[in-house]
Measured scan of single mutants.
Amino acid sequence: NQASVVANQLIPINTALTLAMMRSEVVTPVGIPAEDIPRLVSMQVNRAVPLGTTLMPDMVKGYA
């Protein structure tokens, strides 16, 4: 099963992502692949992401 990127904390809108904000977890539906975590660092979210939410490509500016 593919691990996805999950929010490790509440991430406010327009926040630049850091490693501490993300974790890898096997979830359904599948979100951004966990191997993309290094690429996500310093990218901004375009909405508030609650703790435990799977990051989807449309939630991260410049990812999709």
Rank of each mutant, 00 (worst) to 15 (best):
V49E: 01
Q2T: 09
P57R: 08
A7G: 03
V41W: 11
G52Q: 06
D36T: 13
V5W: 00
D58G: 08
I11T: 02
D36K: 04
V27Q: 05
A64Y: 03
Y63D: 04
N46D: 12
L19D: 12
V49K: 01
I37T: 07
N46K: 13
T54Q: 04
M21L: 08
P29H: 14
E35R: 03
G31K: 01
I13A: 13
V26P: 09
V5L: 04
L40R: 00
V45F: 00
N46S: 12
D58C: 15
I37N: 02
M59L: 06
P50Q: 15
M59K: 02
A64P: 12
M21R: 03
K61R: 14
N46I: 15
I11R: 00
T15D: 12
T53H: 13
S42G: 15
Q44R: 08
Q2W: 08
L10I: 11
Q9M: 12
N14E: 14
R23M: 13
T15V: 10
A16H: 09
I32N: 00
T18H: 08
P57Q: 11
A64T: 15
Y63H: 04
L19F: 13
N46L: 10
V27D: 02
T15N: 05
A16C: 12
A3Q: 05
V60M: 07
L10T: 14
S4P: 01
M43N: 04
A48Y: 12
L51K: 04
M59R: 03
A48R: 07
K61H: 12
L55D: 01
V45M: 06
Q9C: 03
M22A: 01
V60S: 01
L19H: 14
L55W: 00
M56D: 07
L51V: 09
I11G: 01
R39S: 06
P50A: 10
L19A: 13
A16T: 05
E25K: 03
R47K: 13
S42P: 03
R23I: 07
I13V: 12
T28H: 05
N46M: 10
V30Y: 09
P38A: 07
A20I: 15
L17Q: 01
V5N: 01
D36W: 05
L40V: 09
T53I: 08
N14K: 04
V30H: 12
E25Q: 06
D58Y: 06
E35M: 04
P57D: 07
A7H: 01
L55Q: 01
V60E: 01
P57F: 06
E25S: 06
V26K: 03
V26D: 15
V60H: 00
A64V: 15
T54D: 00
V27K: 12
Y63M: 06
N1M: 15
A48C: 05
V5H: 00
M56W: 05
N1R: 02
L17H: 00
S4V: 02
P38R: 04
M59P: 02
K61C: 15
T54S: 04
V60Q: 00
V60W: 01
V45A: 04
M56Y: 05
